[in-house]
């Protein structure tokens, strides 16, 4: 196995992990603080991609479209919180699941109605279409580097927000003890709406960043939501640090599994068997990891201290 391929695959894994983190961070915030199971979080990811795609054509520039789409997504999150989430806070998780499943169906079908069944290809400006030679054989597409940069930037911003601002202090307090925060006379409704909007913006951003690579398509959110749930469970619900580490871990494992597992399997079985079983086993890996983590640490890797 050659080293530069390994490095490239690690970068690919990092990129996937950071995208997962963007989706998972919002999910873990909403889950940890609001105690709300939002299956429709993936639909927000999809909406981000579609808004950004349309705006890219309207404004003629992808990056501009991203900056305009982020506040739009926050607004969408705000509305969703008002209409669907808020009336359900007092209910149990089962009601959240059923209600947000209904929301997925509604949002998916609306997207089908508005944008049609085909996906949208998002054009990038020329300077993002090329490749960057890092060293030696290691050449990566520019846009993937941008995703890594944007992912790290968003993670840094979030870290600062949670650890060094008043809002962050409330969020941290909310994650460990909800009743205490409301007892402090904080406008808890406002805090919840803000958290929801923040989560929607982050998920939307992830969708915007992936759209130029794959495309904006119906159902794209349903593919990532389960992986994002795996991330927050492995990381420990409500833990930003846990979500970050688990996202990178799962991104790397998934990518490295897809790249090298069939070669490894070929040592043990026939080429043909290796080629068909490797994709399945590499897809299984993240679930094996989650089950293993939960079997030994039933609260995930980094459970918030007080619940």
């Amino acid at each position: 196995m050659d080293l530069s391929l390994l490095v490239i695959q690690m970068l690919n894994g990092l990129q996937l992990g950071l995208l997962l983190f963007l989706v998972a961070s919002g999910l873990t915030l909403v889950f940890g603080i609001l105690d709300f199971v939002n299956l429709a979080h993936g639909a927000l990811y999809m909406l981000g991609a579609f808004f950004c795609a349309t705006l890219t054509f309207a404004l003629g520039n992808f990056l501009l479209a991203v900056f305009v789409s982020i506040p739009i997504m926050a607004a969408v999150g705000w509305v969703l919180e008002r209409v669907l989430a808020r009336p359900l806070y007092a209910r149990d998780h089962l009601d959240h699941v059923l209600g947000t499943f209904g929301a997925i169906l509604v949002i998916d079908t609306l997207v089908h109605l508005i944008w049609g069944p085909e996906g949208i290809q998002v054009p990038l400006p020329d300077y993002l279409e090329g490749q960057v030679p890092l060293w030696g054989d290691v050449v990566v597409p520019t846009f993937r580097l941008l995703i890594i940069g944007a992912g790290l930037g968003a993670a840094g911003l979030l870290f600062w927000l949670v650890n060094y601002t008043r809002l962050g202090m409330l969020i941290r307090a909310g994650a460990s003890n909800r009743t205490m925060v409301s007892a402090l006379g904080i406008n808890i409704e406002m805090l919840f709406a803000l958290v929801f909007a923040l989560g929607a913006a982050l998920a939307g951003l992830a969708g915007m960043l992936i759209a130029p690579i794959t495309e904006a398509s119906i159902g794209m959110g349903n593919n990532i939501i389960i992986t994002a749930f795996v991330v927050i469970i492995v990381g420990g619900i409500g833990s930003m640090k846990g979500a970050f580490i688990a996202a990178l871990l799962i991104g790397l494992i998934d990518t490295l599994g897809r790249s090298f597992l069939d070669d490894i399997f070929k040592f043990a079985m026939s080429t043909e068997a290796a080629e068909t079983s490797a994709p399945a086993v590499s897809a299984m890996l993240i679930y094996i990891i989650m089950a293993a983590v939960l079997a030994f640490r039933p609260q995930g890797l980094f459970p918030p201290k007080v619940r």
């Binding site: 391929l5 990129q15 993937r144 490295l256 897809r258």
Partner: peptide, 12 residues
């Protein structure tokens, strides 16, 4: 739909 790992392998 993200073929980053596979394309890297193909290239190598």
């Amino acid at each position: 739909l993200d073929f980053s790992a596979e394309l890297a392998k193909a290239k190598a």
